[in-house]
Design a binder for these strands. Structure first.
Length: 461
RNA sequence: UGCUCGGUAGCUCAGUGGUAGAGCAGGUGGCUGUUAACCACUUGGUCGUAGGUUCGAAUCCUACCCGAGCAGCCA
């Protein structure tokens, strides 16, 4: 027995005398003397309609073939008599591989996203999440393809780390000590020299610093892996565990960084339109009307680039009444970002050259002495999707930054040595993979584009 | 973490002081090459939890739990 995937059956060029499909029943419709089974195996959005006639040996047990059950159907693929599908399978043999009783939580009706989150073990079988995770898989591949085709080296930066990549947020501590009875030093503090790594360790909040190491040997590199932030964030666009893509390029300045960011986003959109078209059409119809139009619009137009200082002037002169008025030296609020990208420019916006005082130590100080070569890419509906910068390659300036931020230079000894031995201008950025998925699918909550969302108070599944 | 909104049948929701409801799902019967099929009948509830006010609370008050939206943190 060779299995045919539903996607291939539906795309068959002609009738097939005999084939076997396996999948889960979405719904059953009984007619007099025969039944329709809608079988889905995840290979595509559409179901295969299986006709079970009275002469099929299993027909007398058809009532057991309930929504959610796993089935195997063998028979002839023929042109459908009905409307709505080109092909259907006339079952000669039918096997109830795994029954689903009437408590099956995924009913053939609309469910709320909140409810579906509670049944994360079953929601991939729904239309929406089936599509989301197909797009996610394809997008992962597109990320690698983008960089590999350009000769970028894929670096596996560590997940366990002792460095806190200053400014990136609260960290999850990793320890093997007994929290109820940790070893203590003489002054009563927890003695981390007794811990597994003999010092405090954490889950990574960014692979950037390590990526810089490899940029300084292999020129163009990228990372793509899980990232952990222990912030108590309760928003639709933050997760405690998420996937981040971080390219890092040697001999590259901020302009080159922004060029890559824009090309990258556009190519991911292009790839999705090409290879996930059916699923995107589903989102366009049921999740976010106008999605496809917006994606094509973004694809066709250059991102608008402007310095932070100019952005603040636009905000000040906008006549909008913001909850927090824009002020040079303060970060851009969500409402400011939304105004720029959704109302003023109506397209993705790259804001660059931020005040030095609100950015981390490693960003390169501009000649004006008060801004750094940082850039954020803002996108309608989501806000910040990319954050990046040119890195400070001058050791003396870097040291001044470390001191100004109150950090201990010894903790960054290897990072500093990169500036001692063959230092080069280099730049990179971080793209939130889930935020890109939200942008591509129109799905409004980050918890619905990641298979198993981790947020404060939630590590189920 | 702060502010706001919400929690009623398996699911989606209505009910705002006086006998707990609808649609869907489930069950029974009927009908039809059907498309979240349709028609009739029907099962199903400690109204998030704990207190309080009241003759009487799903409804009003307090605390807590859970969920969501927004903000901050950021990707």
């Amino acid at each position: 027995m060779q299995r045919t995937m539903v996607k291939d059956a539906l795309g068959a060029p002609g009738p097939v005398p005999r084939m076997t499909v396996q999948g889960w029943i979405r719904t059953r419709r009984d007619a007099k003397g025969f039944s329709f089974l809608e079988v889905n195996d995840g290979s595509c959005r559409a179901n295969l309609q299986v006709i079970v006639n009275a002469d099929c040996p299993q027909y007398e047990r058809i009532a057991e073939f309930t929504t959610g059950s796993a089935v195997e159907a063998t028979g002839e693929l023929v042109a459908s008599q009905g409307k709505g599908q080109a092909w259907e399978l006339r079952a000669a043999g039918l096997v109830l591989v795994g029954a689903a009783d009437d408590a099956y939580p995924l009913q053939k009706k609309r469910h709320s996203l909140e409810y579906l989150r509670e049944i994360a073990h079953l929601r991939p079988r729904s239309n929406l999440f089936g599509a989301v995770f197909r797009v996610r898989s394809r997008l992962s591949f597109a990320v690698h393809r983008f960089f590999q085709e350009r000769g970028f080296l894929y670096v596996h930066t560590p997940i366990l780390t002792a460095s806190d990549c200053e400014g990136a947020g609260e960290m999850f501590r990793v320890t093997t000590l007994d929290p109820a009875d940790p070893p203590r030093t003489e002054d009563g503090k927890v003695d981390y020299s007794e811990d597994f790594f003999e010092r405090p360790a954490y889950l990574t909040v960014s692979g950037q610093l390590e990526a810089e190491i490899f940029a300084c040997s292999h020129s163009n590199v990228y990372t793509f892996g899980p990232t952990f932030r222990a912030e108590n964030s309760n928003t639709s666009r933050h997760a405690s565990e998420f996937w981040m893509i971080e390219p890092e390029m040697a001999f590259c300045d901020l302009q080159g960084d922004m060029d890559l960011a824009e090309t990258f986003i556009k190519e991911l959109i292009q790839d999705s339109l090409e290879h996930s078209g059916d699923d995107l059409a589903f989102f366009d119809e049921f999740v976010d009307k106008g999605l496809l139009e917006r994606l094509r619009f973004v694809l066709d137009r250059p991102f608008h680039r402007l310095p932070y200082t100019e952005a603040v002037e636009i905000l000040k002169g906008s006549g909008e009444s913001f909850t927090y008025p824009a002020e040079w030296g303060a970060g851009l609020q969500s409402e400011h970002e939304r105004f720029l990208t959704e109302k003023h420019f109506k397209c993705p916006v790259s804001v660059y050259d931020y005040p030095k005082s609100i950015k981390p130590f490693y960003m390169r100080t501009n000649d004006d002495g008060r801004t750094v070569a940082a850039m954020d890419v803002l996108v309608p509906g989501i806000g910040e999707i990319i954050g990046g910068s040119q890195r400070e390659e001058r050791l003396d300036v870097l040291d001044a930054g470390i001191a100004a931020h109150g950090l201990n230079p010894d903790d960054y000894w290897w990072y500093r040595e990169l500036r001692r031995y063959g230092s080069v201008p280099h730049a990179g950025f971080g793209l939130g993979f889930e935020r890109m998925l939200m942008f591509l699918t129109g799905v409004g909550n980050i918890r619905d584009v990641i298979p198993f969302a981790r947020t404060p108070g939630n590590v189920d599944f």
